[in-house]
């Protein structure tokens, strides 16, 4: 079947896709994971299809599922720690064929590795030189002001870039690490790979993870980098002070890039990460913060003819138009505004 012409409705009514989404059938999981990797242009469609399925299902998060699964295994006395993979038992494949296939694959691998090994021995010096000469190609992705952008990396990790942010990463990750460079704010959902840590470099702070989801915000106007962890575990290195801090879920680390001061606190994910669902949140926000957020979110310029008195605004706007947001703010803070094209005048 040609899934390339599939529309969102086609995906969410396709049984194998649902099995992949639910994680209930290994064959389907493998098929779709491969398909998603091969069709990076479809990644946004796939993400949207999955979120449409979230209308119908409420899944238990992966980490909790793993806990439940090992509890189940213990309760029935399965002692091996490695999970038995979902195995389509019913697949009837004549024994000789699968044996033959295995043998063929093994033979192929042996030949390949022999070839590789002998070649390597012969011209290992030359290879090294070549490897050093060929610079890895760096890819840059942006979310322009007024936009957000979701990127799926080759390893399956997802990055949602907030407005006015940029991320750089090599076309192919190295063998030891997966490094990316961030300016601005992004939410990361990192595919687990114990052999290759995922490292985000941002404003002199290195955040290292194996597989987890977290948010990083690097604000130049506030001279600070914030790392907020949702699930899993991350290690944060402050490069100047060489300090290393481990975060647990719900913990947020604030690094001041001027003073190098580091503060760890708990956070309310509903409050800090709303941006990725289109929710603008303010918590006792001063005017300059409101200005910065709105300018980037809606791609506008705000001019103050008069500075309104604002003690700190708290509130949220869920997928609202600029006009609605301005109206809400103008009532709450007490100002008048004029909206012309992408220019807003406050008076």
């Amino acid at each position: 079947m040609d899934y390339k012409n599939f529309d969102i409705e086609d995906f969410i009514t396709e049984q194998s896709f649902i099995n992949y989404y639910l994680g209930t059938n290994l064959t389907d999981i493998e098929f779709w994971e491969e398909w998603v990797k091969r069709n990076p242009d479809k990644s946004e469609l796939i993400i949207e299809a999955k979120s449409r399925l979230d209308d119908i299902f409420i899944k238990l998060p992966d980490n909790e599922y793993e806990e439940e699964y090992s509890r189940f295994q213990k309760s029935i006395g399965i002692t091996n720690s490695a999970p038995t993979k979902i195995n389509p038992v019913v697949r009837k494949m004549p024994g000789w064929w699968s044996l033959n296939k295995v043998a063929a694959v093994v033979a192929f691998l042996v030949v390949c590795s022999l070839l590789y090994f002998t070649r390597n021995v012969q011209d290992s010096g030359k290879n090294l030189a070549e490897a050093e000469l060929s610079e890895p190609k760096i890819i840059e992705k942006f979310a322009r002001r007024g936009q957000k952008n979701t990127i799926v990396l080759k390893d399956g990790s997802k990055i949602k870039l907030n407005s006015g942010s940029k991320i750089e990463f090599p076309e192919n990750f190295g063998e030891k690490t997966r490094e990316v460079f961030l300016e601005g704010e992004a939410f990361f959902d990192v595919e687990h790979d114990a052999t290759r840590p995922f490292i985000v470099n941002s404003g002199g702070v290195r955040t290292k993870v194996l597989g987890t989801s977290f948010n990083i915000k690097n604000s130049k106007t506030h001279n600070k980098v914030e790392v907020a962890l949702v699930t899993g575990k991350v290690e944060v290195f402050q490069q100047v002070s060489q300090e290393k801090i481990t975060l647990a879920p719900h913990e947020l680390l604030e690094v001041n890039s001027e003073t190098n001061r580091v503060v760890k606190r708990n956070f309310e994910p509903g409050n800090e990460l709303g941006w990725k669902d289109g929710i603008i949140q303010f918590k006792e926000a001063k005017l300059n913060e409101i200005e910065e957020v709105l300018e980037s979110w809606y791609d506008i310029e705000i001019q103050f003819k008069q500075i309104p008195h604002n003690k700190g605004f708290t509130g949220e706007f869920d997928n609202e138009s600029l006009e609605t947001v301005l109206q809400g703010l103008s009532y709450a803070i007490g100002f008048k505004f004029k909206l012309e094209g992408n220019k807003v005048t406050i008076y």
Binding site: E9, I12, T13, S51, R52, D54, D55, I56, I58, K59, L60, P61, S213, V230, T231, P249, H250, P269, G270, L273, D277, G278, D318, N319
Partner: peptide, 28 residues
């Protein structure tokens, strides 16, 4: 069957964000 399903899903479509919110809560 496909038509019925499309239509049903279409009706639920506008409500994704509620569940997205909910899922976030669940994860946390």
């Amino acid at each position: 069957i496909k038509n019925l399903m499309y239509r049903a899903l279409q009706r639920l479509k506008g409500f994704i964000y509620i569940l997205a919110f909910l899922i976030l809560h669940l994860i946390i």
